[in-house]
Every structure is written in structure tokens, then in C-alpha cells.
């Protein structure tokens, strides 16, 4: 599978402050890639480097087969971006914000209604952006990123500060985009988002990638206990080793119909992150 993004040994500093340190990863086309890290870890800087808004001090980055240092305005027309600061025109209506970008991308205005319906903003199409809620603004910013039907989307904290319902709606839209073959690069500090959405993730801490892989693989890798936690119907909780040695005991509980729940003890991404960095994700 062709890679949509390649980052090789990227380092970057602002003055004497090193914000990215030897970053290496690839994103195969058609995947959702999550960059997981706390605020200030370097996520937004990495997006800026990969989209050509900044030039890295050292290392090599490639986007859609092109050196990111050489991206032109027309290359930017091939990507969709949702930035942390949404960059919407507050005085213009929802429709006019998208109409402007439809003109820029040379897209028919007929597409605007479809996108607004898909993103749940059609009813608010004539409302000024300044009057929208944060969730609606996020959705509008996402709608704008979808306007040019780009092959790759860069989404910086797309669900930050949103309620669970809006977050689920945005996740659903992102899954639809993946089904259409789009590559999605998203940054988040929400471990549930990363676990439920992403094909691969990288954990970023203080400018360095401390772990990379699928969410499930990473959790399994750090499952040091490798135990099963069995809750019996009486409320008793029993820990069993996750191996054949526990099979007989497990069989006995099951035959007695005594099992309420069985859970593995593999850690969450946040637990892994804390184990690797000594810090939380928030």
C-alpha cells in the first residue's frame, strides 16, 4: 500500500526550545492515523510541518509523494485541513463560508447543501458563524475541510471541548471518509477517540514519539499482568492468569454458570502513556 505521509527523522526547534525530536512514522493511504499526546507535546507543530506551513530544521517529510518543503498552493488544494483555531469568517453565514471555499476550490455550489446535510448543519445554513455553538463551528470547519474532496485530511483536535453526542457525530463522519478511501491524520489527547477511530497511533511526549502501532497492539504490548479478571455472580472478583493453566478453573466457573463478566487486564492507552512518560494525557 502506498504511503500518504512519510516522516523521517524530523526535528524542529523554536529558538532554543526543541519541540520535535527525531520523529519517524508513515501513514499508509486510506488509514486514520492518530497522533496522541498532551497539550504542548508538539502535535500542532507536526501538522504545520507536514502541511508545509513550517519547514523542519532537519529530517525529511513527504506528503502525497512530494517533499513538504516544496508544497505549492496547488498542492494545498489537494489536502483538507481543520486547524485548532478554526479560521471561520464570523460575520458570514454558514452557507457563505462554504460558498467562498467552493469558489476557491472551483467546486459547484450545489455540493454545499449535500455537505451541510451530511454534517448536520443544513438547518443553520443562514446563521452567522458568530452565533454558532463551539460544536457547530467545529462541524463547519470540518465541512470546509471536506469541500475539495481531498485525498488526505489533517484534523487538529477535531473534537476538543465537544459534548459526547457531537463527538460521536464527528467520528461517524470520519469513518465515512475512511470508507471512501480518504487518509486522515488527526491529533487528539482523547484516548477513547484514538482507540475507537484510529488504525495506527503514535504517542507523542515532549516532541518525541514514545510508541507507535495499532491501539490494540500497543495495549497488548504493555499488558504486563496478562491476567483475566472474572467477576462472579455473587460479586466476588477473581484474577486468573491468562494461560492454559487457568483453563480448568475457568471451565468450572462456566459450568456452574457463575460468571458475571470476564475482562482482560490490558491497559488503556492512557495507562500506557503514563507508564512511558510518567505523565497523563490532559
Amino acid at each position: 500500500m502506498k504511503n500518504a505521509v512519510t516522516a523521517r527523522d524530523i526535528s524542529h526547534s523554536f529558538g532554543t526550545n526543541r519541540v520535535l525530536n527525531h520523529i519517524t512514522f508513515v501513514i499508509p493511504s486510506g488509514e486514520i492515523f492518530g497522533l496522541l499526546g498532551p497539550s504542548g507535546a508538539g502535535k500542532t507543530t507536526l501538522i504545520k510541518l507536514l502541511t508545509g506551513q513550517l519547514k523542519q530544521d532537519s529530517g525529511y517529510a513527504e506528503l502525497l509523494g512530494k517533499d513538504t518543503k516544496e508544497l505549492s498552493a496547488s498542492d494545498h488544494g489537494q489536502i483538507g485541513i481543520m486547524m485548532d483555531s478554526l479560521g471561520l469568517y464570523d460575520r458570514l453565514s454558514v452557507y457563505n463560508n462554504l460558498a467562498f471555499y467552493a469558489d476557491i476550490y472551483r467546486v459547484s455550489h450545489n455540493k454545499i447543501a449535500d455537505i451541510l446535510k451530511g454534517i448536520g448543519l443544513y438547518e443553520a445554513r443562514n446563521t452567522a458563524v458568530s452565533k454558532l455553538s463551539k460544536g457547530m463551528k467545529n462541524r463547519l470547519s470540518l465541512a470546509r475541510a471536506l469541500m475539495n474532496d481531498a485525498g488526505i485530511l489533517f484534523l487538529d483536535e477535531p473534537t476538543s471541548g465537544l459534548d459526547p453526542v457531537t463527538t460521536r457525530e464527528i467520528h461517524s463522519i470520519l469513518r465515512e471518509q475512511r470508507e471512501k478511501g480518504k487518509t486522515i491524520f488527526l491529533t487528539t489527547h482523547n484516548m477513547f477517540e484514538a482507540e475507537s477511530l484510529c488504525d495506527h497511533i503514535a504517542l507523542l511526549s515532549e516532541g518525541s514519539i514514545v510508541e507507535y502501532g495499532t491501539p490494540a497492539d500497543i495495549c497488548r504490548k504493555y499488558n504486563h499482568l496478562n491476567m483475566l479478571r472474572v467477576t462472579l455472580k455473587g460479586g466476588e472478583i477473581i484474577s486468573l492468569e491468562n494461560s492454559s493453566a487457568s483453563a480448568l478453573q475457568m471451565k468450572e466457573y462456566l459450568e456452574r454458570n457463575a460468571v458475571e463478566t470476564i475482562h482482560s487486564t490490558e491497559p488503556t492507552l492512557e495507562t500506557v502513556f503514563i507508564e512511558l512518560t510518567g505523565k497523563g494525557l490532559d
Partner: peptide, 12 residues
């Protein structure tokens, strides 16, 4: 408002 940054990232 960062609208200019977004615009310059959009083929302008």
C-alpha cells in the same frame, strides 16, 4: 482570526 492562514492553505 486565523482565516488568512486557512485561506493560504487552500490553493490561494
Amino acid at each position: 482570526q486565523n482565516t488568512l492562514r486557512v485561506l493560504l492553505m487552500s490553493n490561494v
